[in-house]
Design a protein around this nucleic acid. Structure first.
Length: 471
RNA sequence: GGCACCAUAGCCAAGUGGUAAGGCAGAGGUCUGCAAAACCUCUAUUCUCCGGUUCAAAUCCGGAUGGUGCCUCCA
């Protein structure tokens, strides 16, 4: 598999440091609110990466943190009159609700900043000992001038930063350099704090990811993933503090996903143009949201609108419909089918599955992978219509389809459907009888009645087929 | 101001040197008692524009235009 490494800005062969075992760290949510669709993208994308690596036979250790202490958590907790721990606990529960619904696998480890204070303090101590950190009035800072490699990931040097900063950065505090960043914030009135060798306080934002990543995955991590907006300063700072502490490469492959936009503008909480996944799920099912995200390559920006979601509903329906059709028609399909249709179909299935894998291998191109899925769908629908393809071939195709969708974290609707009530099945039989007697008025009336009850009847060469109408 | 990214049909979106995937929407047809679903055909002589390299460019190089992002809240 090849992956675009943000550090080198090119696609590279992806290999684990430790044989057959990938160690992945994904920047997780700050738990002060429900997460929005823009936050959901990395969770879905890297979950898909994880599933694919597992499918390829690798062992994967997947870590995704919860930032449960920072300014926003404190602010929100104060506004609600509860403790930060209470707020975090609640929002983590809500995170799991949405993430589980999006079929995002739980990480092997979900470390929390407040439970990793010892690791954080140990890391800062090392940086202090080695002369990369210093104490200022309001906290402990990392000195970027001590790091000759600073700026490598984001492609900027300290001079570039100064130029950008000249109009926006205040030089008023007592940091040695305006871009020095805080490792440990000394406590302020009314805020939670922990003891440390430098005084009571709480961790800075960047340090927690380094500390938790290294604590659970070792000093060198295979993959570190997150949104492009984290490239600078968050990931840049993580590299600086981690590598200065250990002298080793912190991360071998950096992956950054593109934004979710609204009206061509970045979706963000500060712009106020966001939809939480929870809110959106009231209008569109979770599987459609996931499908929508995977329809584009992960590094491209995606725009977001009802029209695009509606199109995704229809596309996803096409796939589900084909799976249902395969299951249904396999029942009446011949046991063996020695003809050309059978051979051509099996060849087509093999070809499209190969295309699917090629796409996934090429920098997790889920858009292309889904195109292969659609090709497979068309071949399957054609095979079904021909009636000259064996039961075995149809079921093999169906299972392959379901299997590949599962790697994408997409569950076919069939699996989620309840059994069709006997009452409905009786009506369908009654309609078939009416049709046989050419009593079409009666047949149509029954079809309408069934539809009113939430089920659709479709006539096929193999007989009438009943499917629930999706809400 | 500095550093990046993006521009492909009505809409969405793959494609990084060999002659434009896939989905949605639309039109026509087949099947059907009628539907639905499905299938077939059609819908970009062309990839924002202008130069250049090459036998060959949506793909590489240079420039222009438009849009977006980052530059100590951010996925």
């Amino acid at each position: 598999m090849r992956i675009f490494n943000s550090m080198t800005r090119q696609k590279e062969a992806l290999t684990p440091l430790e044989p057959n075992h990938f160690k992945i760290y994904v920047c997780g949510p700050t738990v002060y609110d429900y997460f929005h669709i823009g936050n959901a993208r990395p969770f879905v994308v890297y979950d898909t990466l994880r599933r694919y690596l597992l499918w390829l036979g690798y062992e994967v250790t997947y870590v995704q943190n919860f930032t449960d202490i920072d300014d926003k958590v404190i602010q929100r907790a104060q506004a609600e009159g509860i403790t930060t721990a209470e707020l975090a606990e609640r929002m983590i529960k809500e995170y799991y609700h949405d993430a589980d619904s999006l079929n995002i696998m739980r990480a092997d480890i979900h470390p929390r900043a407040t439970e990793s204070i010892d690791d954080i303090i140990a890391l800062i101590s090392t940086l202090m000992d080695k002369g990369f950190a210093y104490t200022a009035e309001d906290g402990v800072y990392f000195s970027i001038e001590q790091d000759p490699n600073y700026g490598r990931l984001s492609g900027r040097n300290i001079d570039d930063l100064m130029e950008g900063a000249s109009e926006r950065t205040s030089y008023s505090d007592d940091k040695r350099h305006p871009f020095d960043f805080v490792l440990w914030k000394f406590k302020r009135e009314g805020e939670p704090y922990w003891p440390s060798p430098w005084g009571e306080g709480r961790p800075g934002w960047h340090i927690e990811c380094s500390a938790m990543g290294m604590a659970h995955l070792g000093e060198t991590i295979d993959l570190h993933c997150g949104g492009v907006d984290l490239t600078f300063p968050h990931h840049e700072n993580e590299i600086a503090q981690s590598e200065c502490a250990t002298g080793k490469t912190f991360v071998r492959y950096w992956m950054h996903n593109g934004f979710v936009n609204i009206d061509q503008r970045k979706m963000s909480k500060s712009l106020g143009n966001f939809f939480t996944v929870r809110e959106l799920s009231k209008h569109y099912p979770y599987d459609v949201i996931r499908f929508f995200i995977l329809q584009a390559h992960y590094r491209m920006p995606i725009n977001f609108s009802d029209e695009l979601l509606d199109a995704a509903v229809a596309s996803w329906q096409r796939i589900n419909s084909s799976i249902d059709l395969l299951t249904f028609s396999a029942k009446a399909a011949p046991e063996t089918a020695p003809g050309e249709d059978e051979t051509l179909f099996e060849e087509a299935v093999t070809r499209y599955l190969a295309e699917w894998q090629d796409a996934m291998d090429d920098d997790l191109n889920t858009a292309d992978a889904l195109a292969a899925i659609f090709e497979l769908v068309r071949a399957a629908n054609t095979a079904v219509a021909s009636g000259r393809v064996s039961k075995k071939a149809l079921l093999n195709a169906r299972d392959a389809l379901i299997g590949r969708l599962d790697v994408l974290g997409l569950k076919p609707r069939t699996d989620q459907k309840a059994a069709i009530p006997q009452r409905i099945l009786d009506l369908v039989d009654e309609r078939t009888e009416a049709k046989k007697n050419r009593d079409f008025a009666r047949a149509d009336a029954i079809r309408d009645e069934v539809l009113t009850n939430g089920y659709k009847i479709e006539d096929t060469p193999q007989g009438a087929r009943v499917i629930p109408v999706d809400a």
